[in-house]
Design a protein around this nucleic acid. Structure first.
Length: 354
DNA sequence: AATACGTGGCT
DNA sequence: TAGCCAAGTAT
């Protein structure tokens, strides 16, 4: 492969244009040997999995304020961590966050391991996150491959094999370009590039430090790459949730099983969501009022239309399922978004998808 | 290897 | 606006 782009050119761009983030060390500090806190890098990288920087910021501040160190997080109540994660999505990440923090405390004396292999053996840390932590927090020369890197490589090398088939080839390209020195800054530089200039829809090639070396730009096909195999259409599933409020204001909620959709999160009792749902007994025997409208929500692999029923129940009411959560303790913000939407609908708040 | 797993923003 | 997309991992 001739005329490869130079990592030094990208690093020079990064030194001037690095985006500020609460978990980041500025390039000038990184150059002088100041390293980011592995705990904060790990936490941010897990939060950033399939999630935008903009969405992560507030959660990161909240988590590091509540739990400044991995020991603090490991000692936290599961329910508090799940509630703090509510709204961020992919809840297995929060469950694995707890498992990982406890493993770091129990097996590594509260000190994050620095090698890629050790990191990847921890819950919730895969090939991308292990390489990101090892390079960014520990200055190891690991090859970091995420969606940004794949897109940038596909364009630089005008590689038109569709994803995911192209993954091995794109990783090989990334390996060729990754420098031994400042690998962490380089990784963050490619990701910044992908998030700003080399964006998915309308890449802004003029200011890119690698334009001249970019084969896709030369061919005028940057915006067409990477190719992707078409996705399957999402089916629509239907369901019903039951919102019961006791006379004293307490709400009837249920903790969902650890496995599966919204696993480990609090939610309203209801039936199983499917294309052809079966009826289920309401969680309390009482007079239920079906609400007008419905909650519309789209998950990764299906659309959901959710009917909502509400009831007021007396103090002595005994639920068949779930537990009453005190009005003083309850916060709709501790619910996953789809459940919060149902609450909002019951409160008469306007739901744009209803 | 293919599928399950959230959400909000952008076009 | 309906679909696409984001710093992936687990199974």
């Amino acid at each position: 492969m001739r005329d490869l782009p130079k990592s030094a050119d990208l690093l020079a761009w990064y030194d001037l244009n690095a985006r500020e983030m609460p978990w980041r060390v500025a390039p000038k500090d990184s150059i002088t040997g100041i390293r980011a806190d592995p705990y904060r890098i790990w936490l941010s990288e897990v939060m950033l999995q399939q999630t935008t920087v903009a969405a992560v910021q507030a959660y990161f501040i909240k988590f590091t304020t509540l739990w400044p160190t991995v020991r603090d997080l490991a000692a936290a109540e599961d329910a508090d961590v799940m509630a703090a994660w509510a709204g961020l999505g992919y809840y297995a990440r929060a469950r694995n966050l707890l498992k990982c923090s406890r493993s770091v405390v129990a097996d590594y004396n509260g000190i994050f391991p620095s090698t890629r292999a050790e990191l990847e053996s921890l819950p919730g840390i895969g090939p991308y996150t292990s390489a990101a932590i090892a390079s960014i927090a520990f200055d190891r020369a690991e090859v970091v491959v995420d969606g940004n890197v794949e897109r940038v490589m596909a364009r630089i090398f005008a590689h038109d094999v569709p994803l995911p088939e192209a993954k091995p080839a794109l990783r090989d390209f990334a390996t060729k370009l990754t420098p031994k020195k400042r690998a962490g800054d380089y990784a963050q530089a490619v990701m910044d590039l992908g998030a700003t200039l080399c964006s998915p829809r309308n890449p802004t090639c003029a200011p890119c430090p690698w334009t001249e070396k970019c084969r896709a730009h030369k061919l005028g096909i940057a915006a067409e790459l990477p190719k992707k195999t078409p996705k399957k259409p999402k089916p629509t599933r239907f369901g019903t949730v039951y919102l019961a409020q006791r006379e004293d204001g307490a709400w009837l909620l249920e903790q969902r099983p650890d496995k599966g959709l919204l696993g480990g999160m609090l939610g309203w009792p209801g039936n199983e969501w499917s294309e052809d749902p079966e009826n289920v007994d309401p969680p309390i025997s009482t007079f239920w009022t079906p609400l007008n409208g419905e909650v519309g929500h789209t998950f990764t692999h299906f659309h959901l239309k959710l009917a909502v029923q509400v009831a007021q129940v007396p103090l002595e009411a005994a639920p068949l399922r779930g537990v009453f959560v005190d009005a003083s303790t309850f916060s709709a913000n501790a619910l996953p978004t789809v459940m919060r939407k149902a609450f909002d609908l019951a409160q008469g708040l306007r739901d744009k998808t209803a």
